[in-house]
Simulated scan of single mutants.
Amino acid sequence: MSAPLLSTRDLTVQFEGLPVLQNVSLDIARGEIVTVVGPNGSGKSTLLKALLGTVPPESGSVQRAPAISIGYVPQKLALDASLPISVARFLSLPKRQSAARIAAQLDRVGVAGLQSHPMQGLSGGQFQRVLLARALLMSPDLLILDEATQGLDQPGVARFYRLIEEVRRDMGCAVLMVSHDLHVVMSASDRVICLNGHVCCQGTPHVVRSAPEYRALFGLGTEGTLALYQHEHDHAHDAEGTHIHGPDCAHAKATLEHSHD
Rank of each mutant, 00 (worst) to 15 (best):
H245P: 00
V199T: 13
D170F: 00
G241H: 09
E232W: 00
V185Y: 00
I164C: 10
H237A: 02
V175D: 11
T242D: 12
E240N: 13
Q230E: 15
R169F: 04
Y214H: 11
T222C: 02
T225P: 01
V207P: 00
V175Y: 11
S189C: 06
Y229Q: 12
R168C: 07
A239L: 12
L220W: 11
Y214S: 04
V208T: 10
A158L: 09
A227Y: 03
A239P: 01
H206T: 12
G224F: 03
A239K: 08
N196P: 07
G219V: 03
P247T: 07
E232L: 01
F160W: 06
G197H: 09
L226T: 05
L152P: 01
H245L: 07
L152R: 02
V157I: 15
D234F: 01
G151K: 09
H180Y: 08
A188D: 15
G219S: 05
Q202M: 12
D234V: 08
L226P: 02
T222E: 15
G221E: 09
A211I: 00
A158K: 11
C201I: 05
G197R: 07
L152A: 01
V207Y: 14
G224A: 15
Q202R: 07
R162P: 02
Y214D: 05
A216Q: 15
E223I: 00
I164M: 13
E213Y: 06
Q230R: 13
D248L: 12
N196A: 14
T242G: 00
Q230G: 02
E232H: 01
A252H: 12
F160A: 03
H231E: 13
A250R: 08
C201W: 12
G241V: 04
G203Y: 10
P212G: 03
L228G: 00
I193C: 11
H245C: 12
S210I: 00
I164Q: 06
C194V: 15
R168M: 11
R159N: 10
H237L: 15
Q150P: 00
V208M: 10
V175S: 08
H198N: 11
A239R: 11
V178L: 08
Q150K: 09
Q154L: 05
E165T: 13
Q150H: 09
R168F: 03
G246K: 05
A252V: 15
M177G: 03
G241N: 06
S189W: 04
L226N: 11
G151Y: 14
S179V: 01
D153T: 02
S187R: 15
A250E: 15
V192Q: 03
S210W: 09
C200S: 11
R162Q: 14
H237C: 02
E240F: 10
H206I: 06
G219W: 08
Q202S: 14
H245G: 03
D181W: 07
L152Q: 01
P247I: 06
H251S: 12
L163C: 04
V178Y: 08
G241D: 08
C173Y: 10
L220S: 05
V175N: 09
D248G: 09
M186W: 06
V208Q: 08
R168G: 08
G224Q: 14
